[in-house]
Design a binder for these strands. Structure first.
Lengths: 188, 188
DNA sequence: TCGATGGGAGAACGATCGTTCTCCGTCATG
DNA sequence: CATGACGGAGAACGATCGTTCTCCCATCGA
Protein backbone atom coordinates (compact mmCIF):
# COMPACT_ATOMS: atom_id res chain seq x y z
CA UNK A 1 0.00 0.00 0.00
CA UNK A 2 1.27 3.41 -0.94
CA UNK A 3 2.37 5.72 1.79
CA UNK A 4 0.25 8.53 0.43
CA UNK A 5 -2.72 6.21 0.25
CA UNK A 6 -2.45 5.59 3.97
CA UNK A 7 -2.29 9.32 4.62
CA UNK A 8 -5.35 9.84 2.47
CA UNK A 9 -7.27 7.12 4.25
CA UNK A 10 -6.35 8.48 7.67
CA UNK A 11 -7.40 12.00 6.76
CA UNK A 12 -10.61 10.83 5.09
CA UNK A 13 -11.54 8.73 8.13
CA UNK A 14 -10.67 11.56 10.50
CA UNK A 15 -12.78 13.92 8.43
CA UNK A 16 -15.82 11.67 8.76
CA UNK A 17 -15.36 11.03 12.46
CA UNK A 18 -14.60 14.65 13.35
CA UNK A 19 -17.61 15.78 11.37
CA UNK A 20 -19.91 13.26 12.99
CA UNK A 21 -18.77 13.55 16.61
CA UNK A 22 -16.67 16.66 16.91
CA UNK A 23 -12.88 16.78 17.01
CA UNK A 24 -12.31 16.53 20.75
CA UNK A 25 -14.71 13.63 21.11
CA UNK A 26 -12.72 11.39 18.76
CA UNK A 27 -9.61 9.86 20.24
CA UNK A 28 -6.60 8.60 18.39
CA UNK A 29 -7.51 5.02 19.19
CA UNK A 30 -10.95 5.37 17.65
CA UNK A 31 -9.40 6.92 14.57
CA UNK A 32 -6.81 4.14 14.44
CA UNK A 33 -9.49 1.47 14.55
CA UNK A 34 -11.76 3.16 12.01
CA UNK A 35 -8.92 3.75 9.57
CA UNK A 36 -7.58 0.21 10.03
CA UNK A 37 -4.06 1.49 10.66
CA UNK A 38 -1.68 0.64 13.43
CA UNK A 39 -0.94 3.32 15.99
CA UNK A 40 2.72 3.22 15.03
CA UNK A 41 1.87 3.88 11.41
CA UNK A 42 -0.46 6.67 12.41
CA UNK A 43 2.29 8.51 14.29
CA UNK A 44 4.67 7.69 11.49
CA UNK A 45 2.49 9.67 9.11
CA UNK A 46 1.47 12.48 11.46
CA UNK A 47 3.47 13.77 14.40
CA UNK A 48 0.44 14.70 16.47
CA UNK A 49 -3.32 14.90 16.52
CA UNK A 50 -3.28 18.61 15.79
CA UNK A 51 -1.41 17.94 12.54
CA UNK A 52 -4.18 15.53 11.56
CA UNK A 53 -6.73 18.21 12.37
CA UNK A 54 -4.95 20.66 10.10
CA UNK A 55 -4.78 18.05 7.32
CA UNK A 56 -8.52 17.49 7.70
CA UNK A 57 -9.13 21.23 7.41
CA UNK A 58 -7.06 21.33 4.23
CA UNK A 59 -9.03 18.42 2.82
CA UNK A 60 -12.30 20.14 3.69
CA UNK A 61 -11.16 23.35 2.08
CA UNK A 62 -10.29 21.60 -1.15
CA UNK A 63 -13.53 19.62 -1.19
CA UNK A 64 -15.56 22.76 -0.58
CA UNK A 65 -13.70 24.84 -3.14
CA UNK A 66 -13.75 22.17 -5.85
CA UNK A 67 -17.39 21.21 -5.29
CA UNK A 68 -18.60 24.78 -5.22
CA UNK A 69 -16.63 25.78 -8.27
CA UNK A 70 -17.90 22.78 -10.22
CA UNK A 71 -21.49 23.71 -9.39
CA UNK A 72 -20.91 27.35 -10.28
CA UNK A 73 -19.42 26.47 -13.64
CA UNK A 74 -22.63 24.68 -14.58
CA UNK A 75 -24.45 28.01 -14.60
CA UNK A 76 -24.51 29.94 -17.85
CA UNK A 77 -24.92 33.52 -16.69
CA UNK A 78 -23.03 35.46 -13.99
CA UNK A 79 -26.33 35.92 -12.15
CA UNK A 80 -26.95 32.20 -12.34
CA UNK A 81 -23.49 31.55 -11.00
CA UNK A 82 -24.23 33.61 -7.91
CA UNK A 83 -27.42 31.64 -7.36
CA UNK A 84 -25.59 28.37 -7.95
CA UNK A 85 -23.86 28.93 -4.61
CA UNK A 86 -27.17 28.29 -2.90
CA UNK A 87 -27.96 25.30 -5.08
CA UNK A 88 -24.67 23.87 -3.94
CA UNK A 89 -25.63 24.52 -0.34
CA UNK A 90 -28.99 22.86 -0.89
CA UNK A 91 -27.54 19.60 -2.18
CA UNK A 92 -24.99 19.67 0.63
CA UNK A 93 -27.63 20.16 3.31
CA UNK A 94 -29.59 17.20 1.96
CA UNK A 95 -26.75 14.79 2.61
CA UNK A 96 -27.47 12.85 5.78
CA UNK A 97 -23.91 13.34 6.95
CA UNK A 98 -24.35 17.11 6.98
CA UNK A 99 -23.73 18.51 10.41
CA UNK A 100 -22.85 22.12 9.67
CA UNK A 101 -19.84 23.84 8.20
CA UNK A 102 -16.71 22.07 9.34
CA UNK A 103 -14.83 25.33 9.69
CA UNK A 104 -17.47 26.98 11.81
CA UNK A 105 -17.58 23.86 13.96
CA UNK A 106 -13.83 23.54 14.35
CA UNK A 107 -13.54 27.25 15.04
CA UNK A 108 -16.18 27.01 17.73
CA UNK A 109 -14.53 23.97 19.24
CA UNK A 110 -10.85 24.88 19.05
CA UNK A 111 -10.58 28.45 17.79
CA UNK A 112 -10.12 29.87 21.25
CA UNK A 113 -7.31 27.51 22.22
CA UNK A 114 -5.66 26.79 18.87
CA UNK A 115 -4.48 29.77 16.83
CA UNK A 116 -3.68 27.41 13.95
CA UNK A 117 -7.30 26.29 13.66
CA UNK A 118 -8.63 29.82 14.09
CA UNK A 119 -6.33 31.19 11.40
CA UNK A 120 -7.20 28.44 8.96
CA UNK A 121 -10.93 28.93 9.48
CA UNK A 122 -10.50 32.67 8.98
CA UNK A 123 -8.54 32.07 5.80
CA UNK A 124 -11.15 29.67 4.47
CA UNK A 125 -13.97 32.13 5.02
CA UNK A 126 -11.92 34.94 3.53
CA UNK A 127 -11.24 32.90 0.40
CA UNK A 128 -14.95 32.16 0.07
CA UNK A 129 -15.78 35.85 0.36
CA UNK A 130 -13.18 36.66 -2.28
CA UNK A 131 -14.66 33.99 -4.53
CA UNK A 132 -18.14 35.46 -4.14
CA UNK A 133 -16.59 38.86 -4.73
CA UNK A 134 -15.20 37.75 -8.09
CA UNK A 135 -18.55 36.29 -9.16
CA UNK A 136 -20.31 39.44 -8.02
CA UNK A 137 -17.93 41.65 -9.98
CA UNK A 138 -18.48 39.56 -13.11
CA UNK A 139 -22.21 40.00 -12.63
CA UNK A 140 -21.74 43.75 -12.37
CA UNK A 141 -22.72 43.99 -8.71
CA UNK A 142 -21.13 46.15 -6.02
CA UNK A 143 -18.77 44.70 -3.38
CA UNK A 144 -21.40 45.03 -0.65
CA UNK A 145 -23.55 42.53 -2.52
CA UNK A 146 -20.79 39.96 -2.21
CA UNK A 147 -20.62 40.49 1.52
CA UNK A 148 -24.38 40.16 1.82
CA UNK A 149 -24.52 36.95 -0.21
CA UNK A 150 -21.66 35.53 1.84
CA UNK A 151 -23.54 36.30 5.06
CA UNK A 152 -26.63 34.62 3.63
CA UNK A 153 -24.61 31.51 2.81
CA UNK A 154 -23.10 31.43 6.31
CA UNK A 155 -26.47 31.84 7.93
CA UNK A 156 -27.99 29.11 5.80
CA UNK A 157 -25.28 26.70 6.92
CA UNK A 158 -25.74 27.26 10.64
CA UNK A 159 -29.51 27.41 10.39
CA UNK A 160 -29.67 24.17 8.44
CA UNK A 161 -27.23 22.49 10.82
CA UNK A 162 -29.03 23.38 14.05
CA UNK A 163 -32.55 23.04 12.71
CA UNK A 164 -31.63 19.77 11.03
CA UNK A 165 -33.50 20.79 7.91
CA UNK A 166 -32.30 21.87 4.45
CA UNK A 167 -35.01 24.53 4.10
CA UNK A 168 -32.60 27.37 4.80
CA UNK A 169 -30.88 26.90 1.44
CA UNK A 170 -34.03 27.66 -0.53
CA UNK A 171 -34.95 30.58 1.70
CA UNK A 172 -31.47 32.04 1.38
CA UNK A 173 -31.64 31.58 -2.38
CA UNK A 174 -34.89 33.52 -2.54
CA UNK A 175 -33.27 36.31 -0.53
CA UNK A 176 -30.28 36.22 -2.86
CA UNK A 177 -32.55 36.73 -5.87
CA UNK A 178 -34.03 39.83 -4.28
CA UNK A 179 -30.65 41.23 -3.28
CA UNK A 180 -29.05 40.55 -6.66
CA UNK A 181 -31.89 42.05 -8.62
CA UNK A 182 -31.99 45.11 -6.40
CA UNK A 183 -28.24 45.64 -6.63
CA UNK A 184 -28.06 45.14 -10.39
CA UNK A 185 -31.01 47.46 -11.10
CA UNK A 186 -29.58 50.31 -9.03
CA UNK A 187 -26.07 49.71 -10.30
CA UNK A 188 -26.97 50.06 -13.94
CA UNK B 1 -24.00 34.85 51.19
CA UNK B 2 -27.26 33.72 49.70
CA UNK B 3 -27.40 30.31 48.17
CA UNK B 4 -28.92 31.68 44.99
CA UNK B 5 -26.20 34.29 44.83
CA UNK B 6 -23.60 31.55 44.73
CA UNK B 7 -25.47 29.80 41.95
CA UNK B 8 -25.65 33.04 40.03
CA UNK B 9 -21.96 33.69 40.46
CA UNK B 10 -21.04 30.18 39.38
CA UNK B 11 -23.18 30.37 36.27
CA UNK B 12 -21.96 33.87 35.40
CA UNK B 13 -18.34 32.80 35.77
CA UNK B 14 -18.92 29.64 33.77
CA UNK B 15 -20.61 31.70 31.07
CA UNK B 16 -17.57 33.95 30.74
CA UNK B 17 -15.05 31.09 30.77
CA UNK B 18 -17.02 28.86 28.40
CA UNK B 19 -17.46 31.78 26.03
CA UNK B 20 -13.78 32.70 26.12
CA UNK B 21 -12.23 29.24 25.93
CA UNK B 22 -14.93 26.81 24.90
CA UNK B 23 -16.77 24.46 27.20
CA UNK B 24 -14.52 21.42 27.00
CA UNK B 25 -11.39 23.46 27.58
CA UNK B 26 -12.55 24.74 30.97
CA UNK B 27 -12.24 22.25 33.80
CA UNK B 28 -14.16 22.26 37.04
CA UNK B 29 -11.07 23.31 38.94
CA UNK B 30 -10.56 26.38 36.79
CA UNK B 31 -14.22 27.29 37.22
CA UNK B 32 -13.93 26.73 40.97
CA UNK B 33 -10.94 29.06 41.22
CA UNK B 34 -12.43 31.76 39.00
CA UNK B 35 -15.74 31.73 40.86
CA UNK B 36 -14.02 31.68 44.25
CA UNK B 37 -16.11 28.76 45.43
CA UNK B 38 -15.01 25.56 47.04
CA UNK B 39 -15.34 22.38 45.02
CA UNK B 40 -17.70 20.99 47.65
CA UNK B 41 -19.98 23.97 47.29
CA UNK B 42 -19.85 23.73 43.55
CA UNK B 43 -21.11 20.14 43.57
CA UNK B 44 -23.58 21.09 46.28
CA UNK B 45 -25.18 23.53 43.86
CA UNK B 46 -24.84 21.50 40.66
CA UNK B 47 -24.74 17.73 40.42
CA UNK B 48 -22.47 17.69 37.38
CA UNK B 49 -20.70 19.78 34.80
CA UNK B 50 -23.40 19.16 32.23
CA UNK B 51 -25.98 20.69 34.57
CA UNK B 52 -23.81 23.80 34.76
CA UNK B 53 -23.62 23.86 30.98
CA UNK B 54 -27.40 23.74 30.76
CA UNK B 55 -27.71 26.52 33.34
CA UNK B 56 -25.29 28.62 31.28
CA UNK B 57 -27.38 28.03 28.17
CA UNK B 58 -30.50 29.15 30.03
CA UNK B 59 -28.71 32.27 31.21
CA UNK B 60 -27.54 33.02 27.68
CA UNK B 61 -31.05 32.53 26.33
CA UNK B 62 -32.49 34.99 28.83
CA UNK B 63 -29.75 37.55 28.24
CA UNK B 64 -30.22 37.31 24.49
CA UNK B 65 -33.99 37.46 24.63
CA UNK B 66 -34.13 40.35 27.11
CA UNK B 67 -31.40 42.36 25.41
CA UNK B 68 -32.88 41.91 21.96
CA UNK B 69 -36.40 42.72 23.07
CA UNK B 70 -35.23 45.87 24.87
CA UNK B 71 -33.48 47.07 21.72
CA UNK B 72 -36.48 46.24 19.55
CA UNK B 73 -38.85 48.15 21.82
CA UNK B 74 -36.82 51.30 21.28
CA UNK B 75 -37.90 51.34 17.66
CA UNK B 76 -41.08 53.21 16.81
CA UNK B 77 -42.26 51.45 13.66
CA UNK B 78 -42.60 47.74 12.89
CA UNK B 79 -40.08 48.18 10.09
CA UNK B 80 -37.69 49.85 12.51
CA UNK B 81 -38.15 46.99 14.93
CA UNK B 82 -37.03 44.49 12.31
CA UNK B 83 -33.94 46.57 11.63
CA UNK B 84 -33.31 46.96 15.36
CA UNK B 85 -32.35 43.28 15.39
CA UNK B 86 -29.24 44.15 13.41
CA UNK B 87 -28.49 47.19 15.56
CA UNK B 88 -28.53 44.84 18.51
CA UNK B 89 -26.15 42.52 16.71
CA UNK B 90 -23.85 45.44 15.91
CA UNK B 91 -23.47 46.53 19.50
CA UNK B 92 -22.98 42.92 20.53
CA UNK B 93 -20.25 42.33 17.94
CA UNK B 94 -18.39 45.42 19.17
CA UNK B 95 -17.96 44.00 22.65
CA UNK B 96 -14.44 42.68 23.03
CA UNK B 97 -15.74 39.54 24.71
CA UNK B 98 -17.72 38.60 21.61
CA UNK B 99 -16.66 35.25 20.28
CA UNK B 100 -19.70 34.17 18.31
CA UNK B 101 -23.16 32.96 19.23
CA UNK B 102 -22.91 30.80 22.33
CA UNK B 103 -25.54 28.42 21.03
CA UNK B 104 -23.87 27.88 17.70
CA UNK B 105 -20.59 27.31 19.53
CA UNK B 106 -22.01 24.91 22.09
CA UNK B 107 -23.90 23.06 19.37
CA UNK B 108 -20.73 22.70 17.34
CA UNK B 109 -18.79 21.55 20.38
CA UNK B 110 -21.27 19.23 22.08
CA UNK B 111 -24.31 18.89 19.85
CA UNK B 112 -23.16 15.60 18.39
CA UNK B 113 -22.55 13.95 21.76
CA UNK B 114 -25.06 15.71 24.02
CA UNK B 115 -28.72 15.61 22.95
CA UNK B 116 -29.55 18.02 25.77
CA UNK B 117 -27.29 20.71 24.35
CA UNK B 118 -28.44 20.07 20.80
CA UNK B 119 -32.10 20.31 21.77
CA UNK B 120 -31.61 23.50 23.75
CA UNK B 121 -29.73 25.16 20.89
CA UNK B 122 -32.46 24.11 18.49
CA UNK B 123 -35.10 25.50 20.82
CA UNK B 124 -33.25 28.78 21.19
CA UNK B 125 -32.95 29.27 17.45
CA UNK B 126 -36.59 28.28 16.95
CA UNK B 127 -37.72 30.85 19.51
CA UNK B 128 -35.66 33.52 17.76
CA UNK B 129 -37.23 32.64 14.43
CA UNK B 130 -40.67 32.83 16.00
CA UNK B 131 -39.82 36.20 17.48
CA UNK B 132 -38.72 37.50 14.08
CA UNK B 133 -41.88 35.96 12.67
CA UNK B 134 -44.05 38.01 15.04
CA UNK B 135 -42.22 41.22 14.20
CA UNK B 136 -42.50 40.44 10.50
CA UNK B 137 -46.21 39.80 10.78
CA UNK B 138 -46.72 43.11 12.58
CA UNK B 139 -44.82 44.82 9.79
CA UNK B 140 -47.10 43.16 7.24
CA UNK B 141 -44.43 40.95 5.72
CA UNK B 142 -44.78 37.32 4.61
CA UNK B 143 -43.41 34.42 6.67
CA UNK B 144 -40.55 33.83 4.22
CA UNK B 145 -39.21 37.29 5.06
CA UNK B 146 -38.86 36.23 8.68
CA UNK B 147 -36.86 33.17 7.67
CA UNK B 148 -34.63 35.28 5.45
CA UNK B 149 -33.95 37.88 8.13
CA UNK B 150 -33.21 35.10 10.62
CA UNK B 151 -30.69 33.59 8.22
CA UNK B 152 -29.09 37.00 7.77
CA UNK B 153 -28.77 37.38 11.53
CA UNK B 154 -27.23 33.92 11.87
CA UNK B 155 -24.78 34.57 9.08
CA UNK B 156 -23.77 37.90 10.56
CA UNK B 157 -22.98 36.21 13.87
CA UNK B 158 -20.71 33.53 12.43
CA UNK B 159 -19.09 35.91 9.97
CA UNK B 160 -18.33 38.46 12.66
CA UNK B 161 -17.04 35.77 15.00
CA UNK B 162 -14.61 34.17 12.57
CA UNK B 163 -13.53 37.36 10.83
CA UNK B 164 -13.11 39.08 14.18
CA UNK B 165 -14.78 42.18 12.83
CA UNK B 166 -18.23 43.70 13.48
CA UNK B 167 -18.70 44.75 9.83
CA UNK B 168 -21.12 41.92 9.12
CA UNK B 169 -23.83 43.55 11.24
CA UNK B 170 -23.99 46.64 9.04
CA UNK B 171 -23.82 44.60 5.84
CA UNK B 172 -26.61 42.33 7.03
CA UNK B 173 -28.65 45.38 8.01
CA UNK B 174 -28.31 46.80 4.52
CA UNK B 175 -29.47 43.51 3.10
CA UNK B 176 -32.39 43.50 5.52
CA UNK B 177 -33.49 46.91 4.30
CA UNK B 178 -33.58 45.64 0.73
CA UNK B 179 -35.43 42.45 1.66
CA UNK B 180 -37.96 44.24 3.85
CA UNK B 181 -38.72 46.92 1.28
CA UNK B 182 -39.05 44.36 -1.48
CA UNK B 183 -41.35 42.15 0.58
CA UNK B 184 -43.56 44.99 1.79
CA UNK B 185 -43.93 46.54 -1.66
CA UNK B 186 -44.99 43.28 -3.28
CA UNK B 187 -47.16 42.32 -0.32
CA UNK B 188 -49.29 45.46 -0.39
C1' DT C 1 -14.32 25.67 78.10
C1' DC C 2 -15.74 21.98 75.42
C1' DG C 3 -17.62 19.29 71.93
C1' DA C 4 -20.16 19.09 67.74
C1' DT C 5 -21.09 20.84 63.23
C1' DG C 6 -20.19 22.68 58.87
C1' DG C 7 -17.52 24.43 55.31
C1' DG C 8 -12.96 25.21 52.81
C1' DA C 9 -8.73 23.43 50.68
C1' DG C 10 -7.05 20.14 48.22
C1' DA C 11 -5.62 15.15 48.00
C1' DA C 12 -7.35 11.03 45.94
C1' DC C 13 -9.67 8.14 42.56
C1' DG C 14 -11.09 6.17 38.33
C1' DA C 15 -11.52 7.15 33.56
C1' DT C 16 -9.77 8.84 29.35
C1' DC C 17 -6.66 11.11 26.36
C1' DG C 18 -2.37 11.74 23.43
C1' DT C 19 1.84 9.61 22.91
C1' DT C 20 5.55 6.17 23.37
C1' DC C 21 7.40 1.64 24.13
C1' DT C 22 7.58 -3.36 24.22
C1' DC C 23 6.85 -7.67 22.58
C1' DC C 24 6.33 -10.89 18.99
C1' DG C 25 5.46 -12.85 14.55
C1' DT C 26 6.93 -12.35 9.65
C1' DC C 27 9.58 -11.93 5.85
C1' DA C 28 13.71 -11.00 3.17
C1' DT C 29 18.50 -12.02 2.62
C1' DG C 30 23.09 -14.54 3.18
C1' DC D 1 18.47 -22.63 7.78
C1' DA D 2 19.84 -18.68 10.51
C1' DT D 3 19.57 -13.87 11.39
C1' DG D 4 18.19 -9.44 11.55
C1' DA D 5 15.14 -5.72 10.27
C1' DC D 6 10.32 -4.38 10.06
C1' DG D 7 5.54 -3.77 11.19
C1' DG D 8 1.32 -4.74 13.92
C1' DA D 9 -1.17 -5.13 18.30
C1' DG D 10 -1.73 -3.30 22.29
C1' DA D 11 0.32 -2.43 26.99
C1' DA D 12 2.28 1.40 29.38
C1' DC D 13 2.98 6.17 30.73
C1' DG D 14 2.14 10.76 32.11
C1' DA D 15 -1.25 14.29 32.03
C1' DT D 16 -5.77 15.87 32.70
C1' DC D 17 -10.55 15.56 33.59
C1' DG D 18 -14.94 15.04 36.43
C1' DT D 19 -16.10 13.63 40.81
C1' DT D 20 -15.62 12.19 45.67
C1' DC D 21 -13.34 11.91 50.06
C1' DT D 22 -10.44 13.35 53.88
C1' DC D 23 -8.56 16.37 56.90
C1' DC D 24 -8.63 20.50 59.46
C1' DC D 25 -10.10 24.74 61.34
C1' DA D 26 -13.50 28.00 62.75
C1' DT D 27 -17.69 28.90 64.76
C1' DC D 28 -21.41 28.38 68.10
C1' DG D 29 -24.52 26.65 71.78
C1' DA D 30 -24.43 24.59 76.53
Amino acid sequence: MEVSEIRTRIVATADELYNAKGIQSVGMDELRTAAGVSLKRLYQEFPSKSSIVMAVLERRHEAWTDGLDAKVREAATPRGQLLAIFDYLSQWFCQDTFRGCGFINSFAELGAVSPEVADYARGHKASFQEYVGRLTKEAGGPPVLAAQLSILAEGAQTTAAIAGSPDAAGQARQAAVVLIDAALSTAS
